[in-house]
Design a protein around this nucleic acid. Structure first.
Lengths: 220, 220
DNA sequence: CAAAAAATTGCGGGGCACGCAACTTTTTCG
DNA sequence: CGAAAAAGTTGCGTGCCCCGCAATTTTTTG
């Protein structure tokens, strides 16, 4: 029987992706349901109908599986940013790309928020979560560099990093205070673009060439 | 025998702190020496002359112990920031406080840097490391809020978060590129304060993405 | 369709984190 | 002071996790 559609990806590849997705999804669902400490690798594997050993072929820890959703966002982020019109100011592009990315899923329901918030209490997850964000950050920096013509890599990383900061802050504010995500996010990005004048008083005068001790290096 | 000095802290408390410090130090030293995967909890405990079980009374994981140095920095950060003169512009205060904090330790010798860099390859540590930074971030936000009179908590968190972003970016640049930490850090903080005009302002266009997008993400 | 390439699985080992129940040290107080 | 209480340490046992290895099954290739 000839396949109706000859997909670009080999059968093997499709199965792999599907398995990975299923495992991640199961991991997240179960964790939201019972809390991470009550989910054994075996449970996740069973849920998907695969051996526990196989789980570890895809993820090297439960935490990684749960957080892989976050990582998956970077692909969309890259595309969104690259899709912005050429002449547009960089800050506008970034802002729109980010906002677009985070308005995909509508405002989530209350119970869900509560669970997520609870999850973040789980320290195990926080590390992995931040790790995932760091991955997104890298892609964002790369894309920004690409966008502006690869001028100053350091600055691109700074921008990516602080944009992610805004996202995280808005996110936390959302699920702890219950305030809507997007308006907050937009405001924070605007503040970033302006150097946070609201806080610093707007009148930012040049403060001395800063006679700091220039040579020391820090450890870890 | 009457105690020469009546320390504020009870004997019990002093012993506890000392034990914790010793364990953290041993953990870091051994990890730098052999790499995290070749350090068992037992090794660390033995080094300090305490039972493995006791180690877990202080830290709930090796990683936590190794990264506790970072966490300890937040105390200094708060003090430094609060010590800045009253009228000083906020950005200056923050900048000085951060720079001061990271110029404490002197010579960074090459081998040491190499080890640290290697360490950051260890994903296990990255999560915990980022977690530690998040803790610092929290304290910083609090202190900033305190400094400016608790106006807008959200903005304070944004500032703290993006400042930590700058620190992280400078730090990574330091141990991957070998460039000096403090000048970079100073520059990044200045850029932050100005909304990153070098990237966004000036010539607001840079077509030709050069299509050199490296697609693969190395981690996760 | 058979050989090659790649994925899944069971097994076993080395560790880690932690609850629990002694046991020891420090602190408190009559 | 000295005994009870409070707090810290330790050994033991348990459950789970991660991974290397080798055998097996599935998919791809020529």
């Amino acid at each position: 029987m000839p396949p109706e559609e000859p997909p670009k990806l080999t059968l093997r590849e499709r199965k792999k992706r599907e398995a990975r997705r299923a495992l991640a999804q199961a991991a997240l669902r179960l964790t939201l349901e019972r809390g991470l400490e009550n989910v054994r690798v075996e449970d996740i594997a069973t849920e998907v109908g695969v051996s526990p050993r196989t789980f570890n072929n895809y993820f090297s820890s439960k935490e990684q599986a749960v957080c892989s959703v976050v990582v998956d966002r970077h692909e969309g982020m890259r595309e969104a940013l690259l899709a912005r019109p050429e002449g547009e100011p960089l800050w506008t592009s970034v802002k729109q790309a980010v906002l677009e990315q985070y308005s995909r899923d509508g405002e989530p329901d209350r119970a869900y928020v509560a669970r997520i918030r609870e999850l973040m209490g789980q320290l195990m997850l926080r590390g992995e979560f931040l790790n995932a964000h760091a991955a997104v950050e890298r892609v964002l920096a790369e894309t920004i560099a690409n966008r502006v013509g690869g001028v100053d890599h350091l600055l691109c990383r700074l921008m990516a990093s602080s944009v992610e900061s805004a996202v995280r802050v808005a996110f936390v504010n959302w699920f702890t205070e219950g305030e809507p995500l997007l308006p907050t996010l937009e405001r924070l990005l605007d503040e970033l673009a302006a150097g946070m004048p609201t806080l610093t008083g707007g009148t930012e005068r040049k403060p001395e060439p800063t006679t700091t001790t220039p040579l020391g290096e820090s450890l870890c």
